[in-house]
């Protein structure tokens, strides 16, 4: 595939074929020289935990196996999803970043410039997907770069290259969206009505460059649904108006206090 600057690229992650092998995680770590964290052992088969400064791909495992299985899982007994930065069109992280360290690249991805970021962590409070973390070595915010350096060298991102089941597909966005809707039709025709796309259109953050085919509701995968996918700036107007109203009342009260005190002085 030829990779040309000026074209929008992204990932289509088809969770229906993810087998949880974590090849994407390993490829990401080895290309990006991320040393990783000690494994986290919970009550499932997932020992990565979640996306953070050292894990730019993290395969989620959701165990839905019923205690007394009467039917086959219909693709829902195990939900696996290789999670990643969504490279949102309306990116919350980019919106709040005060240093302009977070930029949109010539490949339409969202990139944190490590030499510009000063580690204020405003982006962490904003990203609705919990993608970014401050790295304890570099002390700046880190996340998936969509393998910016590989793209500049004409290579596809390491995770997509390594994925053995084509669950992670990389390519120009238009092409990926077509592929995704064909795949969705196939699954529906095969009697899997719960299959749904997330982030392929502009209903979530104006569209996600890394979008997903899910086998259950988005919240199951720690993805806010369309109603909850909201930008931080939604509170600017109301927040400042409340502050302004409080300021006006405070000044008014202060003036009354000065007058009343004066009246008392005059009485005495």
């Amino acid at each position: 595939m030829e990779i040309t600057p000026g074209t929008a690229y992204g990932f289509f992650t088809d969770t229906s074929v993810c087998i949880g092998c974590k090849a994407c995680e390993v490829a990401c770590k080895s290309w990006n020289l991320l040393e990783g964290n000690p494994p986290a052992f919970g009550d499932g088969y997932d020992n990565t935990g979640r996306l953070d400064a050292q894990n730019w791909r993290a395969v989620q495992f959701h165990d839905n196996v019923p205690d007394n299985p009467a039917v086959t899982g219909q693709g829902k007994a195990w939900l696996m999803m290789s999670d990643v930065c969504k490279h949102c069109q309306h990116a919350s992280c980019m919106e709040v970043c005060p240093t302009n360290a977070i930029i949109r690249t010539e490949f339409d991805s969202v990139f944190i410039q490590p030499d510009v970021c000063n580690g204020c962590r405003n982006c962490i409070s904003a990203c609705p997907y919990g993608v970014i973390e401050q790295d304890e070595h570099s002390r700046v915010a880190q996340k998936c770069t969509l393998c910016y350096d590989r793209l500049q060298g004409g290579m596809e991102p390491a995770c997509a290259k390594a994925c053995p089941t084509q669950s992670i597909q990389f390519g120009p966005l238009d092409e990926l969206r077509e592929r995704a809707s064909r795949r969705l039709d196939t699954l529906h025709a095969q009697g899997v009505p719960q299959a749904q796309l997330y982030g392929h259109d502009d209903s979530v953050y104006g569209g996600l460059n890394a979008f997903f085919l899910l086998m259950d509701e988005p919240e199951k995968y720690r993805l806010p649904d369309a109603a909850n996918a909201v930008l931080p700036s939604r509170h600017n107007k109301r927040g400042y108006l409340t502050t302004l109203a409080t300021a006006a009342l405070a000044v008014l009260g202060g003036l009354i206090a000065l007058r009343r005190r004066r009246a008392r002085d005059d009485d005495s």
Binding site: R121, I124, P128, G130, Q134
Partner: peptide
């Protein structure tokens, strides 16, 4: 309930 899957900024 409002859905939040955000990470703490450690402020």
């Amino acid at each position: 309930d409002a859905q939040h899957f955000v990470r703490d900024p450690d402020w």
